[in-house]
Simulated assay, not measured.
Amino acid sequence: MSGYKIVYRGGEGEIVEKKSRFIATVCPVNSEEDAAAFIEQTKKKYWDARHNCHAFVIGERNELSRCSDDGEPAGTAGKPMLDVLLGAGLHNVCVVVTRYFGGTLLGTGGLVRAYSGAVQEGLANSLVIEKILNCRMKIYTDYNGIGKIQYILGKSSAVTVNSEYTDRVVVEILIDKVFSEALIKEITEATSGKASIEILEECYCGVADGEIIVF
């Protein structure tokens, strides 16, 4: 996949419906074991709650998904929670919604809206980023070619990771894999083939808090 959305940093959100509290706790996970541990940890934290319902999706293509109503009427909690995660296009995330019963029954529709709304609130308080498949490459050039290369890089989506100026110039960049071939072609043509380009690796990158994160 060229890119997919994840929760980089989890968060918590709460809504109240007819005096019932619905607390959503969101956490990034990479495996079913991670999800199980997070669910258990949250249940211990809210041990006195009536329900701790959960949903999670794992894998670049959401190969694994699970949900639980934890005692609520079938289909009123876990499935709506899972639908919110899938609808948001998220991967590798788990959410637990804790309910403290307020004494008034909400009915099937009310429960679906409450559990869905709680997850949305939890996601709104989390940091969601897109992981994009990038190419990390080095561009080798002489001083005559660096001006043209810097111009090309400046109008592209490439991010310069490092530059070295010795008897030649070496520029290390990250660029969305989708645009990498076109960039290589443009640099090669602009420098009449004098610049050489070395592809180091493919890696997923994302932007969090204004910084580039390499996964």
Rank of each mutant, 00 (worst) to 15 (best):
G3E: 15
K5A: 06
K5N: 12
I6A: 03
I6T: 04
V7R: 01
V7S: 03
R9Y: 04
E14Q: 13
E14M: 09
E14L: 08
E17P: 07
F22V: 12
F22W: 11
C27I: 04
V29S: 02
N30L: 10
S31F: 01
E32T: 07
E33M: 02
D34K: 00
A36K: 15
E40M: 04
E40K: 11
Q41L: 10
K43L: 04
K45A: 10
D48A: 14
R50I: 05
R50T: 14
A55L: 05
A55Y: 04
S65T: 10
D69S: 09
P73F: 08
P73A: 07
A77M: 07
D83N: 15
V84E: 15
V84C: 14
L85K: 12
A88L: 06
L90S: 10
H91T: 15
V96F: 11
V96E: 08
V96I: 09
T104M: 03
L106N: 02
T108M: 05
G109I: 05
L111H: 07
R113A: 13
A114P: 08
S116G: 15
S116T: 15
E121Y: 04
E121N: 13
G122I: 05
L123V: 08
L123F: 08
A124K: 15
A124P: 01
I129S: 02
I129W: 00
I129T: 04
I129V: 12
L133P: 07
L133D: 09
L133F: 09
M137V: 04
K138P: 03
D142G: 15
Y143I: 06
G145F: 00
I146R: 05
I146F: 02
Q150T: 12
Q150S: 12
I152Y: 01
G154A: 11
S156F: 00
S157P: 00
S157V: 02
V159N: 09
V159R: 09
T160D: 02
T160H: 03
V161C: 03
V161K: 06
E164L: 11
T166C: 08
T166Y: 08
R168Q: 12
V169S: 06
V170Q: 11
V171G: 02
V171P: 00
I173S: 00
K177A: 09
S180D: 03
E181T: 14
A182S: 13
I184W: 00
I184M: 06
K185P: 02
E189Y: 07
E189I: 07
G193H: 06
K194S: 01
K194V: 02
I199T: 15
C203N: 13
Y204C: 06
A208D: 00
G210V: 01
G210M: 01
E211S: 09
E211K: 14
I213F: 09
V214K: 11
F215A: 11
